[in-house]
Design a binder for these strands. Structure first.
Length: 186
DNA sequence: ACATCGATGTACT
DNA sequence: GTACATCGATGTC
């Protein structure tokens, strides 16, 4: 028997709550993926968020229904993958503990160490093969598969990475002690 | 351990 | 022209 995927309802809630609840959730693209161990929350009232200035061609998916993907290009090089929550808000997936498809991940990433496969938002999109073609797609249908997490360790929070505006807000969440987070939390 | 820098698409001034 | 939700390489302590 297979595990039931996360329902659309799971994503339709305040983004800070969702960002915390996503730690421990399984994320797979065409069967390749692992357990979410690090997230960041963004919403329309937050100056650091792409949605802050209202809808644009790039951020359109952030204003669409909950439970869809928002994918954008970062620094001209990487793709970043978000899960849309309530309108104008989304959760950036920053790191996974790899579980399935390690060989394909290593091939796509050009590295073999497990720690370097999915520990960072740009790294994990490369490892899972996520790009612009996934922008706006629903998360409860192929190629995506999101499954509820088992009981995990303690979830801790701290400031987000790589932003300048509203930089103090402790809206990054991570699994305490995980070797797979992009940067340690306290 | 930390600091700096290059690569470079997209949004915005 | 400048900033940016990044990464990897290189240089220094």
């Amino acid at each position: 028997m297979s595990i039931a995927p996360l329902a659309r309802q799971f994503f339709d809630r305040p983004v800070l709550e969702l960002a915390r609840a996503l730690i421990g959730v399984g994320l797979f693209v065409d069967g390749v993926g692992g357990t979410i161990v690090e997230t960041e929350a963004y919403d329309a009232a937050d100056p650091a968020s792409h949605s802050f200035a209202g809808p644009t061609a790039r951020n359109r998916a952030m204003f669409g229904p909950a439970g869809h993907a928002y994918v954008y290009r970062s620094y001209g090089i990487h793709w970043c993958f978000n899960l849309v929550a309530q309108p104008g808000s989304a959760v950036l997936i920053r790191a996974l503990a790899p579980l399935a498809g390690l060989e394909l991940m290593a091939q796509r990433r050009g590295v073999s160490e497990a720690r370097l496969l999915c520990s960072g938002p740009g790294r994990l999109t490369q490892a899972l093969g996520i790009d612009k073609s996934h922008d706006g797609l629903p998360l409860d249908a192929p190629p995506f598969r999101l499954v509820p997490g088992e009981a995990m360790g303690k979830v801790v929070s701290g400031p987000r990475i790589g932003i300048t505006r509203n930089a103090e807000a402790p809206w990054r969440f991570g699994l305490s002690g995980s070797p797979h987070v992009s940067r340690r939390l306290r």
